[in-house]
């Protein structure tokens, strides 16, 4: 599609003379429209980003001045910082479980709310509430209560006979991360909205056609809904992955990285090192590493998307 326009551009520019003025005008108009964004981008994002790249190559403590050390921070991170590896491992573990779980709950509920029934509006709002509460103090208090050894979660497990003994889910090195993953799965509001929007755009005719072919509800889901929803799933996947790679508040208010650093996600480590301990240079290097990593993972996901994401436009 874009090639067509580029070709047009060329034709236009070849048509110089009379159209040159028009061409300049068009360019100018375009830039005027993106100018506010461009200024904001350069001032608030690009410039600070480059500056942090520079800081990552310096030794810079929060109350001192930066002094150039080349790649030393990066070398130290990779060769002499076990916590960096711990936090990477924890973050990947979290992302690998939390993202699919959140997307699955979001999709399931979107399917439930797809059809308008009485009170659907109320229900949708109610199911969005956990996401609105975000990382507020109420969540932190409740989560700690819920998953403590005296908490309701244990009451439940003991009552249904899954467990004999109560354990502290928050305090147990192997399970603490799961309290945070469950929180993530529970706050599925925004991907749910996006799924609802995606579902709405699937043409009804396709279902009718499938029904005529004798497909049941389940078959319809797998032959119509799921394939047509793959672009939306992919979109949600990217958005949530980026978000969860940098998860901070939810961890910070519930476990603060403990026990035994088993919930020390990357953003919490970066915060501790860069802000709390004041190693700005080192912190900037940590931030750039995650930026590069995130980019690589995103590119890889895009590469796989050709295999499973269904693009409507291909049929055109």
């Amino acid at each position: 599609m874009n090639n067509k326009f580029e070709a047009l551009d060329t034709v236009r520019s070849l048509d110089a003379g009379m159209n040159k003025k028009k061409w300049i005008k068009e360019n100018l108009t375009g830039y005027v429209f993106i100018l506010p964004w461009l200024i904001g981008f350069l001032a608030f994002l690009a410039f600070p980003l480059l500056r942090s790249l520079y800081y990552s190559l310096t030794e810079y403590t929060i109350v001192g001045d930066p002094s150039w050390v080349g790649l030393r921070n990066y070398i130290e991170i990779f060769t002499d910082d076990p916590k960096f590896w711990t936090s990477l491992k924890v973050t990947f573990y979290y992302v690998v479980f939390a993202v699919p779980l959140r997307l699955a709950s979001a999709l399931a509920l979107a399917l439930v709310f797809r059809k308008a029934r009485p009170f659907t509006n109320f229900y949708r709002a109610a199911y969005y509430v956990p996401s609105i509460l975000g990382g507020s103090v109420a969540i932190s208090v409740i989560w700690r209560q819920l998953f403590s050894s005296q908490g309701a979660f244990n009451d439940f497990l003991v009552a249904i006979g899954v467990m004999g003994d109560r354990i502290s889910w928050i305090g147990h090195p192997d399970y603490a991360i799961w309290t945070i993953i469950i929180l993530a799965a529970w706050q599925f509001g925004s991907p749910m909205i996006i799924f609802l929007a995606g579902l709405k755009q699937i043409p009804k005719g396709l279902y009718e056609a499938a029904e005529i072919d004798g497909a049941g509800k389940i078959q319809q889901f797998f032959s119509v809904t799921l394939p047509l929803l793959t672009p939306v799933i992919f979109f949600n996947l990217i958005m949530q992955m980026v978000k969860m790679f940098m998860v901070f508040t939810q961890v910070y208010i519930i476990t603060e990285g403990g026990p035994l650093n088993r919930t020390l996600v990357y953003a919490v480590y970066l915060y501790r090192k860069g802000i709390s301990n004041g190693y700005l240079g080192y912190g900037s290097a940590l931030a750039w590493i995650i930026l590069v990593l995130l980019t690589i993972v995103t590119i890889l996901l895009f590469k796989t998307s050709n295999k499973w994401v269904y693009y409507e436009s291909e049929g055109e």
Binding site: F5, D9, Y31, R51, G274, G283, A287, L291, L294
Partner: peptide, 26 residues
């Protein structure tokens, strides 16, 4: 239509990857 349109659009989309923490101190 303007020169660099595709480029700026790609840049704009790519900024989704920039973690906010990285920008705080600069």
């Amino acid at each position: 239509r303007f020169i660099g349109q595709k480029f700026w659009f790609a840049i704009m989309i790519a900024t989704v990857l920039v973690p906010g923490q990285i920008l705080r101190i600069p």
